[in-house]
Amino acid sequence: MKTHALGRGAPQVTEFCLGTMTFGTQTDTADAHRQISMALEAGINFIDTAEAYPVNPISAETAGDTEAIIGEWNAANPGRRGEYVLATKVAGEGLGAIRDGAPISRATILEAVEASLRRLQTDHIDLYQLHWPNRGSYHFRQNWSFDPSGQSRADTMAHMEEVLVTIDELVTAGKIGHFGLSNESAWGTAQWLRMAEDKGLPRVVSIQNEYSLLARLFDTDLAELCVNEEVGLMAFSPLAAGLLTGKYQGGAVPDGSRMAINGNLGGRVSPRVWDAVDAYAGIAQAHGLDLTQMSLAWCKTRPFMGSILFGASSVTQLEHILNGLDLTLSDEVVAEIDAAHKAHPMPY
C-alpha cells in the first residue's frame, strides 16, 4: 500500500487509516482486536482514535473504552506498537460528555495525554489532535446557521499560544510526536500555522474533517490552504456514515447499523440525500464497481488527501473494504462523479 508524509515533517502513513470509533459499542473487544491485526496485515500503518470514543452513543461512562481496547491489543502484541502510527484526540466543548464539556486548555491537554497513554498502554502518541475548536465550528451540519460574530479574536490567539506551548513541552518530553486539528476551518487552520511560525512552536501537520462524495465543504478554502501549506486531510466518514454503502437505500435499516441506533445519522439523512446516493450507486453499477469501494477510491484522487479514515463495525465489513483498497478509478468514472456532484451538491 502506498505511503506518503501525512503533512510537512509528519510521519509516512498509508493512504488509508483504520478508524476505531465503534470499538466498545458496536464492535466488541475480540472483533476490534481482529480488525487491528487484519488492517496491519493488509499493509495499513495508521490507526486513529480519541479519548471520547466509542460513539453510538458518546457518553461519560464509556469514554476511553476504545483507547483501552487498543491498549489491550498493544499489551497482547509486544513489539508491534512500532508497526503503526497512532493518532488520538483531546475532546473539548464540542463533546459535552467529556469533562462536562470543559474547553481545551493546558490543564485538560496534560490530563488527557496522561490518561490516553495509560489506556493505550504506550509511552508515545504519534499524532495528537484537538477534537473540536474551543470557539465552535460549522461542522456536523452547523454550517447552515454558523455565526462566528461572537468569537473573541484575542481569546482565540491566547488559547492557541497556550496550546502550542503545551504541545511543544509534550513533544520535548517524548510523549507526543506531532500536532493536528479536527473539525477546523480555513481561518482557524491558518492562525494555528501562523502562530507556530511566529513563535517557533510545533506546526499543524494534519486536519481531520468530514469528507466524502456527499460532504465536500473541504473542496473550497481548506483545499487550497492544505495544498499550499502541506497540511494533510484525514478524511473522516468517507462513506457518509454508511450512506455510501447503499445499505440504507429503499428504506432499509439493518439491525445493529448506525441508523438503527442514530436515526438521522447525525443530520446526514435529508430528503435530497437519497437521490444523491442513487446517482453515485448508478455510476458504480454502470462500471461494474462496488459503491463502497468506489467511494473510498474516489477520495484517493483528491490532491489534498493525507489519509482516508474508514471504520467498520465488524470484521466482515472490514474484509469488504480491504478487498477494494487497491482500486483506481478511470478518468471516465471520475468525470461522471463530478457531474453527479454538480447535480446533487451538498445533499445534507
Rank of each mutant, 00 (worst) to 15 (best):
V165S: 13
V269I: 15
G101T: 14
D255K: 11
E229M: 07
A252L: 08
Q121V: 07
V269E: 02
A235I: 08
A91I: 01
A241V: 11
L130Y: 04
A42G: 11
F140G: 03
T108D: 09
A339Q: 12
A312L: 05
I321E: 04
T122H: 07
R216Q: 14
P103N: 08
L130C: 14
A173H: 12
L6D: 08
A60H: 03
H159A: 09
I337C: 10
V269A: 06
Y248A: 04
S313L: 00
A297P: 05
G24Y: 01
Q191F: 00
G267K: 04
Q285R: 15
W144F: 11
D219I: 11
G79E: 09
D255Q: 12
Q285M: 10
M160I: 14
S149E: 02
T62V: 00
T189W: 00
L225C: 06
G94V: 03
G306Y: 11
N209E: 11
L318P: 06
I98K: 01
N262D: 14
I176Q: 11
Q191E: 13
N134P: 05
Q129S: 01
G246M: 10
Y128S: 04
S295V: 05
Y53S: 03
V171W: 04
S105N: 13
A312S: 15
R135Q: 15
Y348S: 15
